[in-house]
Design a protein around this nucleic acid. Structure first.
Lengths: 163, 163
DNA sequence: AGCAGATACTTCAAGCATAAAATTTACAGG
DNA sequence: CCTGTAAATTTTATGCTTGAAGTATCTGCT
């Protein structure tokens, strides 16, 4: 920290590197939105469902004993109120059921119904195929490299103060 | 197409590669949402605005002569009705103005107001700093590699039938 | 026991997003 | 001129998303 180190200035100036990073971010966003859009399309057109519903079902699929509302919220990193609405709809569709929790009347356990489990298992397999199709140009090596870089970025962002 | 080529089967089976691609997609989505979340946070907390508004202003900033509603919709790849709402709010905030188009009374030209232009210029510089900060762990070489891969993926997705 | 604070969830208001229907204007052909 | 079709935008219905406020329940402390 000698020679008057500019703590803030470093992030504020526009260098070639910062422009490259901005460009990278824009590409990342573009691909992410494109893939997400295609997936949403297929979920809607072929299965009358949505990505948020799929995400909730996926979380529940991995937890056969069920998850609390708060557990879903934490797993998916979305707000509590959001989960309420999505689970409401899934419950009406019969894919999920709310179960009173034994020792705590505040909490609700959410579980896949048998029908929900069957439907999701089939859908998940199809989903993997869609992704495989969309990312078809990426070989195993490139995938591994990308994953490593992305995990490094994620770790750095997580670390940098939450909320 | 000889020897009974299985056109569909290739995408449907779950191989190690397809699992790697699924994993890649999940990481991509995670990073994208994390970065996007941070940017939204800073826009909201520091500037009382949102990413969609920012995106519209950015598109208009690049087009000093203005853009039609449909032009914005196409540039940002969002629906027409969506643009209507966002421009409504930006107009109320005085950052943007709707101008009747000379030869065609169906169309409306949207332009940044002088105030909108000034505010956006400052905000865009700050935005670049935020991204630089969030992607700080990525050097020039890694960025170039990632960008190349992402562009290949994007090209492949675009090509695969629109709408 | 009683109460203060924390926890789990729902409700609410606002904004973003889409697809589909409706509205207005333009234009081409008879 | 008149009619049908296309184009640009807005409106409508529905759903996702957040942050903030509200309700019920639980827990720890005195």
């Amino acid at each position: 920290m000698s020679r008057g180190a500019p703590e803030v200035a470093a992030a504020a100036q526009s260098t070639a590197l910062s422009k490259a990073r901005l460009r990278l971010w824009l590409r990342l966003l573009k691909v992410s939105r494109a893939v997400e859009g295609r997936l949403r399309e297929r979920l809607r057109d072929g299965h009358a469902t949505t990505l948020p519903r799929f995400d909730v079902l996926a979380a529940l699929f991995r937890a056969p004993e069920g998850l609390t509302m708060g557990g879903i919220s934490a797993a998916l990193r979305v707000s509590n109120g959001n989960v309420t609405g999505i689970v409401d709809r899934l419950e009406q569709e019969g894919q999920v059921s709310r179960i009173a929790m034994a020792g705590d009347r505040r909490a609700t356990l959410v579980r896949l119904t048998p029908a929900g489990r069957d439907q999701f298992a089939a859908l998940a397999a199809e989903h993997e195929g869609w992704v495989d199709d969309l990312l078809g140009g990426v070989d195993a090596e490139a995938a591994a490299g990308l994953i490593a870089t992305l995990e490094a970025i994620a770790a750095r962002i997580e670390k940098g103060g939450r909320r």
